[in-house]
Design a protein around this nucleic acid. Structure first.
Length: 270
DNA sequence: AGCGCGACCTGGAGGC
DNA sequence: TGCCTCCAGGTCGCGC
C-alpha cells in the first residue's frame, strides 16, 4: 500500500491523537512481522508518554523519552485511531491503548511491516544509511547527478534506491520519469545534470501533490480516519498501460523492471 | 563494489 | 462455486 505520501498522510492523521498521550496498555497479537516484534515492547512502552510522531523515509517514529518505536507499514500495513472499543479484526496485530481512551491499531495482512525499538532512532542500522528526504532543500538535481556518475543501473532503479533519495516508490518513480521525459531503462550514469534537475523537480512535485491529496488509493488504502486518498485520479501513467499518452496520445507501454510494473511513453521518454 | 533477483506474506482478481 | 495463477504500493540481503 503505502508510499511516502501515504505514510505522511498517516503521520498527520495519528499525530494529534498520540502526541502527549501516555501509553496505558500494549497488545501484541502477532509478533511475526518482517522482523519479530521485540518481546519486551510492552514493558518498554507502558506508562511512557508519546512526545512526538515523526517520519523519516517511509518509517514512522513514535518518540518516547527513552527511545523510539520505529514503525514501517510494509506493502499492506495501516495505522488507525480507534475511538471506541471496537473488537480487533483479522490482521490487527498490535494495539497501543492511550490515556485518552483511544487505541492506536496496527493492521498488516502481508506482515511486511515492522515494529522495532531503538534507543536512538537515527543510529539504527535501518535508518542511519538512508539518503536525503525528497522534499528537503538538500535534495536536488545536482545531488542526483553526482550520485549517479559511473552507475550502470537503470535510472528507475537508481531513484528507487533509498541510499540515493528516500521515499520514491514504484508508482511515483513511474510518474516522475514520465514528467521528466526520461526512459526508465536509461543508465543512471548517462543522464545530464540538466535532465537530473528536471527529474528532481518532477519527484518533488509528484510527491507533494500526492500528499496534498491524501495519498494514492489503489485497492484498499485508507488513511488513519479510514478515508481513501484521491491522488489515483491524477496518475499520468501508472495503471494506464495501453491508454493514450497524456502528451502525444501514443499507447503507453509496460515492461517489468526488477519485477515491478513500469509504464512509460516510448516517444516522450528517452 | 555494483547490480539483479529471490524472499518474506496474504488476499483479490480473473481465467477456466 | 471452486481451483489455479498472477499480481500488488517495500526493501533487505544474498549471490554473481
Amino acid at each position: 500500500m503505502p508510499e511516502l505520501p501515504e505514510v505522511e498522510t498517516t503521520r498527520r492523521g495519528i499525530a494529534p491523537h498520540c502526541e502527549g498521550q501516555t501509553i496505558t496498555g500494549v497488545t501484541v497479537r502477532n509478533p511475526s512481522l518482517r522482523w519479530p516484534v521485540p518481546e519486551d515492547l510492552a514493558q518498554r512502552l507502558e506508562g511512557q508518554v508519546i512526545r512526538t510522531v515523526d517520519r523519516r523515509a517511509k518509517y514512522l517514529f513514535l518518540n518516547l523519552d527513552g527511545g523510539t518505536v520505529i514503525v514501517h507499514l510494509g506493502m499492506s500495513g495501516s495505522l488507525r485511531i480507534i475511538a471506541d472499543d471496537s473488537p480487533p479484526m483479522t490482521h490487527d496485530h498490535i494495539d497501543l491503548q492511550l490515556q485518552s481512551g483511544a487505541t492506536l491499531r496496527f493492521n498488516d495482512p502481508r506482515r511486511f511491516g515492522c515494529w522495532l525499538w531503538a534507543d536512538r532512532a537515527t543510529e539504527h542500522p535501518l535508518i542511519a544509511s538512508l539518503g536525503p528526504e525528497p522534499l528537503s532543500p538538500e535534495f536536488n538535481g545536482g545531488l542526483l547527478f553526482r550520485a549517479s556518475r559511473g552507475k550502470q543501473t537503470p535510472v528507475k532503479s537508481f531513484i528507487m534506491d533509498n541510499h540515493v533519495v528516500v521515499g520514491v516508490g514504484n508508482i511515483y518513480a513511474n510518474e516522475a520519469l514520465f514528467k521528466a521525459g526520461i526512459h526508465p531503462r536509461r543508465k543512471a550514469g548517462r543522464i545530464s545534470a540538466d535532465r537530473y534537475h528536471r527529474l528532481a523537480e518532477a519527484i518533488r512535485e509528484t510527491l507533494s501533490a500526492a500528499i496534498l491529496m491524501g495519498g494514492t488509493t489503489l485497492r484498499d488504502f485508507v488513511n488513519s480516519d479510514g478515508k481513501p486518498g484521491y491522488f489515483a485520479q491524477s496518475l499520468l501513467v501508472y495503471g494506464r498501460t495501453g491508454q493514450p499518452c497524456p502528451d502525444c496520445e501514443r499507447p503507453l507501454k509496460e515492461i517489468r523492471m526488477n519485477n515491478r510494473a513500469t509504464v512509460y511513453c516510448s516517444r516522450c521518454q528517452r
